[in-house]
Amino acid sequence: MVCAPVGWGDVLILRASGKDGYNEYLYKTLGESVNSVETILLDKRELANNTDILRKIRQAEAIFLAGGDQGNYVNFWQGTPVADALNERIREGAVMGGTSAGCGILGQTYFSALEGSVTSEEALANPYNKRVAMRRNDFLKQPLLVNTITDMHYSTRNRQGRHLAFMARAATDWAIQPRGIGVDEKTAVCVTPDGNVSVFGQGNAYFLQATKKKPELCKQNQPLTWHRKGKAVHVTIIAGSVEGITGFNLTSFQSITQAKSEYWSVDSGVLARVDLR
């Protein structure tokens, strides 16, 4: 997921593991539209106080958060000057995006992965499983992603069920009406400052909106039930393309063109989907 286009600036890739494989690819792909591309490995919490790194973050026009283990991002960056600098760039309108784990921490309500990953089966069987580690409003603060939980590798890893469990926890623990954005592999969700969304690539993007009613049963060691007559969560599905399909707006959280839509619900830990088109 990325927000807004980039032009004539410095691109900074931040990661908590891995190497600098994006540098050459992005520089060749973006060509003359950028001045530089650099990767910084922030794999220790003490590096989050480094003045040179903070300066580069504050000077970057575009910042991309790489994949890996999002628990590392939380452990190494949350509550540090790096997080402060990233939020400064968000407020100032810099482009920011991420892939996989880097996308997973973009929402203001998020799955931290501090206890490791979790499958849909595990999360639906017990939404308070210790692996369903949820946090809110303590890391990145992108206004377009208030109360929004992102999830990635969506269809390939069958993550629809755990996404509903994350949203059920948010609705139960914080009394909010949560939203979700799910992204298939080889797919990009690109957002302009006014909230308009274009979906690029080979898969789909899924925009989830919970109803105003909380789950009927969301408790420790009990299977999740969030049924609401089969209409617990409304889902808009936008297919990607090479040119990009503009079909949704995050500000209104509604489709702006004809799009496939479904209702998703959970009954005793079992996910159900009803196609509306």
Score class of each variant (00 low, 15 high):
Arg135Phe: 06
Gln59Cys: 08
Glu61Tyr: 11
Glu46Trp: 01
Leu114His: 05
Gly102Pro: 01
Ala101Asp: 06
Arg131Trp: 05
Ala125Ile: 11
Pro143Ser: 09
Asp69Met: 11
Gly97Met: 01
Thr99Ala: 04
Val37Arg: 02
Thr39Cys: 05
Ala85Val: 06
Gly116Gln: 04
Cys103Asp: 02
Gly93Thr: 03
Phe64Met: 06
Asn75Glu: 11
Glu61Lys: 15
Ala94His: 07
Ser117Tyr: 07
Leu86Ser: 03
Arg131Asp: 01
Val132Asn: 11
Leu124Val: 12
Asp69Asn: 15
Ala48Glu: 00
Ser100Cys: 10
Leu41Glu: 01
Gly31Leu: 14
Leu65Asp: 12
Val132Trp: 12
Asn50His: 12
Phe139Asn: 06
Tyr73Pro: 07
Gly71Lys: 09
Glu38Asn: 01
Gln78Lys: 15
Ala94Ile: 09
Leu140Tyr: 09
Ile105Met: 09
Glu122Val: 13
Arg131Asn: 09
Ala60Ser: 15
Glu46Pro: 00
Ser36Gln: 04
Val95Cys: 14
Ala123Glu: 09
Ala133Tyr: 05
Leu65Val: 14
Phe139Gly: 03
Asn50Gln: 13
Asn72Lys: 13
Arg58His: 11
Phe111Ser: 10
Ser33Gln: 10
Ile105Ala: 05
Ala94Cys: 14
Thr51Phe: 10
Gly102Phe: 07
Pro143Met: 05
Asn50Met: 08
Leu54His: 08
Asn49Trp: 13
Leu54Met: 07
Lys44His: 05
Arg136Val: 06
Ile57Asp: 11
Ile40Gly: 00
Gln78Glu: 15
Leu41Ile: 04
Glu38Trp: 00
Val34Gly: 13
Arg131Pro: 00
Arg58Thr: 12
Lys130Met: 02
Gln108Gly: 00
Gly79Phe: 01
Tyr110Trp: 03
Glu61Thr: 14
Gly31Cys: 15
Leu124His: 08
Ala60His: 06
Ala123Trp: 12
Gln142Cys: 04
Ile57Leu: 15
Ser100Ala: 05
Cys103Glu: 00
Arg136Ser: 11
Asn87Asp: 02
Pro127Asn: 10
Gln108Asn: 13
Ala85Ile: 03
